[in-house]
Design a protein around this nucleic acid. Structure first.
Lengths: 244, 244
DNA sequence: AGATAACATACCGGCGGTCGGTTTGTAACT
DNA sequence: AGTTACAAACCGACCGCCGGTATGTTATCT
């Protein structure tokens, strides 16, 4: 009956069925790659569908909107940073300064491990039209890091190690340093990719040393207390970033 | 010939013709109001057209894309801040600290004048879905202010008034303080609107005092050198904001 | 008068999102 | 084991609308 309708005809193309977790992360993988390559606004759902080899219905079964993709990508990436921060939180031996320096070292270690991925991220964040992605990532990372940093500062004030006028304002300020760091990193990466690893290392070390001195003041410490001018670490990080 | 086509028929509705400047600012007025009310992404070109009472062709005669509206609104608003900053730059009498304090005072004076408009801006910037607008405004204002601030700091170092490890990093850090200030302002405005002007003033003064102390350290000054805890000024500003 | 700026209107391609239906895994029941 | 029942995974056609364009029309200026 009612075969006047354009024949239901061919069966839908089967492309395999996966568990929700697998599919979701598969979709996020594709979305992440596309966002980094083309920018958030320029990527369409159709692009993602084509990349994954899935249909629109399938996609919207797992995500309720395009925005979900952004959240998904951002959260998945920053969750690892959160874990690293939590790991650092565990080590409570030493005074607050030691803890703080350990915190910074852990942060750097994480960056070295993630160097290649981080490089893509930086590229993506500096790409015009990707301001929203950049904004979200910064905020998410800062939100994840803030409590850890804050606790260290509070401990330090309690010990008498630090002399801080306003703990919240100072943590915020330290976190905000990452904003400007991006510009430096851009130049550093370009230099490193041009082959001049020494110059790149010097540039990055200079920036981080300046941050260190600034933080020294914020925490009421003597100049040089905060260990943020680890040339060798940066060299390793840059080598890892530019290789591959 | 070729009158098989559906008769050109009725003449276009004339709705008045304006000079480009008038129309542009008229369109920007409408766009600004809509952006603040609904958020950048939620506002369509059609919304703006309806508000102004103009056609699509008219709109695209003055703006090449929707993005242009964002830039237009942001630039028009921040230009005034730039002008105020330039005015402050003109007064070169007194040492760098005096100049710096004058710079801050000028900034506050501008805020008082623009208080009502600023209030809408803050509302808009805190509105979810308006991250892009917020991001752009912050950047534009910072870009406009940076050179002025930087010059004062350089002068201060030259005079020996300031002791600054890295002028660029310190200016950046001072500029970055505005990010966190938004959250405070949100709370302050709510308190003020609840009728408790005293509490609101106290809250704002506390934040600004903390910023002042922090800047003292950044500039290598004695605590209290930077005049950022002007309760009376803040009270005036808040009164202006909540009135009307 | 004619050139040009300031519009208007119809239209387009494509996007995010929806919907009704179909397939497939799974587990309970016989 | 075989059958059945149900929900989850998935498909693809479709929709409304949005940003943007093409082309025609009127006002203004020289």
């Amino acid at each position: 009956m009612n075969d006047s309708a354009p024949a239901k005809s061919n069966a839908p193309q089967r492309r395999g069925r996966l568990s929700p977790d697998k599919r979701k992360s598969q979709i996020l993988d594709a979305a992440q790659a596309l966002f980094f390559a083309k920018g958030w606004e320029a990527v369409t759902i159709a692009d993602v569908l084509a990349e994954v080899g899935i249909s629109k219905g399938g996609f919207y079964h797992h995500f309720i909107a395009k925005e979900d993709l952004l959240d998904g990508v951002v959260n998945r990436f920053t969750t690892r940073a959160l874990d690293a921060a939590d790991a650092a939180r565990g080590q409570t031996d030493g005074d607050a300064l030691a803890q703080f320096n350990e915190f910074l070292a852990e942060s750097n270690r994480w960056k070295i491990e993630q160097a290649k991925q981080l490089r893509f991220f930086l590229d993506a964040m500096l790409r015009p039209g990707n301001e929203l992605l950049s904004y979200r990532i910064s905020n998410t990372v800062a939100d994840a890091t803030r409590p850890v940093l804050r606790k260290i500062l509070v401990d330090g004030v309690g010990e008498g190690t630090f002399d801080i006028p306003d703990v919240d304002l100072v943590s915020e300020t330290i976190l905000n340093l990452s904003h400007g760091r991006r510009e430096t990193l851009e130049a550093v990466i370009r230099t490193a990719e041009a082959g001049d690893l020494d110059a790149a290392t010097a540039l990055l070390t200079e920036r981080m040393s300046a941050e260190g001195v600034l933080i020294d003041r914020l925490l009421g410490l003597e100049r040089g207390s905060v260990a943020l001018s680890q040339s060798e670490e940066y060299r390793l990080m840059l080598r890892a970033m530019t290789q591959g």
